[in-house]
Design a protein around this nucleic acid. Structure first.
Lengths: 239, 239
DNA sequence: TCAAAAGTGTTCTACTTACACCCATGC
DNA sequence: GCATGGGTGTAAGTAGAACACTTTTGA
């Protein structure tokens, strides 16, 4: 924070959101269709500009609400990375602070709001199979890698599930985000044994067939001891 | 990245550097004494403003060179977090992108340069035992936690050591950064067994007493499989 | 020969993995 | 009954923790 004798660039600061959910056992990201130039009509991450006195986290929460109808206070939301390459936005000096958000499978987009332009798009491999505006493809890749890593060491997988949830639902989160198959019996034991990952509610949920599953809510742990281990070689969960 | 009808704030963007090294078995951070208001005379993290067309990483490398004489291309350097709270700088809208840098114990500060105002300060617990300018105490805490976490899953501990190094030097990095004692025999085996962490040079180094130690250089691994595990309860390594 | 630092051996325990198997429900 | 998904048992293999012990040097 030492002053230079040359004039610093003035930036507009944006927040862009990588919002993930799991629907039908597949990882999805929320995209919006841009209504203005540049990249009009192109898919992009939702986001918007920061205006003081609001800080970055608050901007992210606000944008989440405006563009998706989701309440940021209920979701996992964490800062990812700041992007400021000169060529990232043709309008000029616009730096973006990317956020990772994780949502349960909720009825979004909400019709009749800004969010009507939003859509859940399945993530295959490292991307969405279509061009994204600005450097959003890179931001999406970074967000995906962050989410995958955080599943290992923290209980954020539960943020993908509506409470209460079953252990199988939690397992399908790991399978969708990591793109691997996970052994159900071992996963069950591990999750229920790791201190503070999940908490039994005492309730059960019947599915159409099979034994009713115990229901759980998220525990109090912030980190997992021991961590969930991502297999070194990925076994595709979806052919 | 959706335009608002209200005018976004214009920010100056700064990069601030949390530069760690280990000297005499203790973790140190590089601080500078501010020569101007605000916080004139107060200790602060080195840093400076971003000027396009330079991007954030390049700004961090440049500031590292200007303020410490270190060559950023030789060091571990990674982005930490972006800070933009309204009250973080009394001069107004200045957002800071913090970087974590890891350096071996080199003869820095370099007298006769800008770096002469820089000093290595030991880190005790979570801080440096003196007030820091702006929100730099928070940035330092975040950098410290990042460094501690990265020692677990990546080989960055080697970035604290001049090449070639001994396994004991590497162990002292873990002890200094984590603030724990590490069992030497088990550490030795683990480090030399994990694929790609360190590479034997075939040379030996004699110390004043004891058996000469094998010398190693950093291996090619980007992540450690399995990771180095930080003890759940910290056993203080000093004091 | 002694101290000190490097490096090896050994044992116990914890965790992971693979997979067999039982449980509880709807049809 | 039987198909289906939930959950438990069990045994083999791998990794971590503790610590005794050997090796190799300088003084």
């Amino acid at each position: 924070m030492i002053e230079s004798d040359r004039t610093p660039t003035l930036f507009q600061l944006a927040v862009d959101l990588v919002i993930f959910t799991v629907r039908e056992d597949r990882l999805h990201v929320l995209l919006v269709e841009r209504g203005k130039e540049p990249f009009r009509g192109c898919a992009a991450l939702p986001g918007g500009f920061v205006r003081l006195p609001e800080d970055l986290d608050a901007s992210a929460v606000r944008e989440l609400g405006e563009e998706t109808g989701l309440d940021g206070r209920d979701l996992h939301l964490e800062q990812l990375h700041c992007y400021a390459r000169e060529d990232r936005d043709p309008r000029g000096a616009i730096a973006s602070v990317a956020y990772l958000a994780i949502a349960p499978d909720l009825p979004v987009p909400v019709p009749g709001t800004d969010a009507a332009r939003a859509m859940w798009v399945p993530v295959d491999g490292d991307g969405v199979g279509r061009p994204l505006a600005f450097d959003h493809a890179q931001i999406l890749r970074d967000g995906l890698e962050r989410a995958r890593a955080k599943l290992e060491s923290t209980p954020i997988a539960a943020a993908f599930c509506r409470t209460p949830f079953t252990i199988t639902e939690l397992r399908r989160v790991y399978e969708a985000v990591w793109g691997v198959q996970v052994d159900a019996p071992n996963f069950y034991r591990k999750v229920t044994k790791v201190e503070g990952f999940v908490k039994e509610t005492g309730e059960y949920r019947s599915s159409f067939t099979g034994r009713p599953a115990k229901l759980y809510s998220r525990g109090s742990a912030q980190v997992l001891h021991p961590p969930m281990l991502r297999p070194a070689r990925s076994v595709p969960a979806h052919g």
